[in-house]
Amino acid sequence: MSDQHLHYPSDLAPGDEEEVRVGPRLAGYCIGFGLAIVLTATSFFIAGTNLVWQPSIPVALVVLAIAQMGVHLVFFIHITTDPDNTNNILALAFGLLIVFLVVAGSLWIMANLNQNMPPMDQIMRMQR
């Protein structure tokens, strides 16, 4: 690593590697692919099994999905802690914030409305 820092071969972007060395890059894709397969298989297995406590299944599925997205980001899209990647990570963090607000906010508000509004037939009766 320190050797590479001496001559600064090129700039980095997501999806980009600094050196054309096939071996480590191939290994990276293989590791990512293997991890993704394991996580996917676990998801499909967990969804249809009776071996685990049933209410834990949705939580397990969400956790496995987030883990697999992380694997894709690191091994396929090559988001790293490299200084050249700082802007990409900041943009990703902001995107995740918006995604969280949209999804969690919608679910929260709609669940609240469902609880607090009377059923449709009662509204119709009140309007009469």
């Binding site: 090129s10 700039d11 980095l12 972007a13 997501p14 999806g15 980009d16 050249d84 802007n87 990409n88 943009a91 990703l92």
Partner: peptide, 11 residues
């Protein structure tokens, strides 16, 4: 470099 800005924009 152009490669970085292109990747960032597409990201």
């Amino acid at each position: 470099s152009k490669r970085i800005t292109t990747g960032f924009g597409f990201w």
